[in-house]
Amino acid sequence: MLGFGLAIEPQLWALLFVMVRVGAAFVAAPVFGNVSVPVQVRVALSGAVAILVLGTNTIAVPPTVFALSTFLSVAAEALVGLALGFVVQIAFAAPLVAGEIIGGSMGIGFASMMDPTTGRSSPAVSQFLSILLTLLFLSLDGHLVLVDMVAKSYRALPPGAAWMTAGQMRDIAMFGGYAFLAGLLLALPVGFLLLCQNIVMGMLSRSAPALNLFSVGLPASLAVGVVTLGIALPAMGDYMQVIVREGLAAAQSLVLLTTGGF
């Protein structure tokens, strides 16, 4: 019942109720939440996953639509879905931090372009690393793992008992520091060599005061950064795989309070 003497199909109401958690996860998660993904595609994917969940789990939906308990249940479902997607999105912020460090050291921090995932302007180096991380995420079947995690969340956090504790919220907030740590480690190979290059340029400026650092230092920093980035790219790709696995593992442990390997 809707609550005003009006009836609604139980199957349709169950589908819409399950789509709340799934849709919230897709809105906050990487790849699914990109602005380039049409809303119609997200709704269709949410409906498809919701049908899968209804076929594999017994979902107890609220009996009345327009009721305070129903609104609270819907809010709890949306919170769980947003938390699942947001934790993985935190890991995807690491390339942005690394790109800021590398771009600033190379002297091209002003070079920016439109980010298709967010629709906002971001540094070109950050954009390059973000695209690389997204491709690795898809190649490692991270999107399938995320969908499987959302489906399994109905067993770990069934509707009606899906309220997240204050400790979980605190742990998710503390996981935000992982983005800065991972970004620093990701930029370490290139950033260290650029730091050494800046030290050498500083020594040259002290020994030869007539040397124009703007005409020599910027091209040298750009050349060293591009060459070092190409050499360190395989190692950075390996660490990006670690970032993907850490993000998925954190979503499972912090939100679902379960552990497992990916």
Rank of each mutant, 00 (worst) to 15 (best):
Pro63Met: 12
Gly183Val: 06
Ala250Thr: 07
Ala48Lys: 12
Asp115Trp: 00
Leu254Lys: 03
Val37His: 00
Leu233Cys: 11
His143Ser: 09
Tyr154Glu: 05
His143Trp: 04
Ser46Glu: 05
Gln252Gly: 07
Met149Thr: 04
Ile243Val: 10
Leu136Glu: 09
Ile231Asn: 02
Leu82Gln: 05
Pro189Ser: 14
Glu100Ala: 03
Thr258Gln: 15
Val242His: 10
Ser130Arg: 01
Ser121Gln: 14
Ala25Glu: 02
Ala223Glu: 14
Gly160Ile: 09
Pro38Cys: 09
Lys152Arg: 15
Val35Phe: 08
Ala161Phe: 13
Leu15Ile: 06
Ile199Gly: 06
Gly5Tyr: 00
Phe180Asp: 02
Val65Thr: 04
Met174Ala: 06
Gly202Ile: 11
Phe214Asp: 12
Ser221Met: 14
Gln241Thr: 07
Val145Trp: 03
Asn212Lys: 04
Val74Ile: 14
Gly55Ala: 13
Ala76Ile: 09
Gln127Ala: 14
Val18Thr: 10
Gly33Phe: 06
Pro189Thr: 13
Gly225Glu: 06
Ile108Gln: 01
Ile8Asp: 13
Phe128Thr: 13
Phe92Asn: 05
Leu54Cys: 07
Ser215Asn: 15
Gln11His: 15
Val226Ser: 10
Leu136Ser: 11
Ala50Met: 07
Phe192Leu: 15
Ala91Glu: 04
Ile243Tyr: 00
Gly230Arg: 08
Met201Ile: 14
Arg21Cys: 11
Leu52Ile: 13
Arg206Gln: 15
Met201Leu: 15
Gly109Glu: 06
Leu211Gly: 06
Ser153Glu: 10
Leu129His: 00
Leu6Asn: 10
Ala179Trp: 06
Leu229Asp: 00
Leu72Asp: 14
Phe86Thr: 08
Ala223Pro: 03
Ile131Tyr: 10
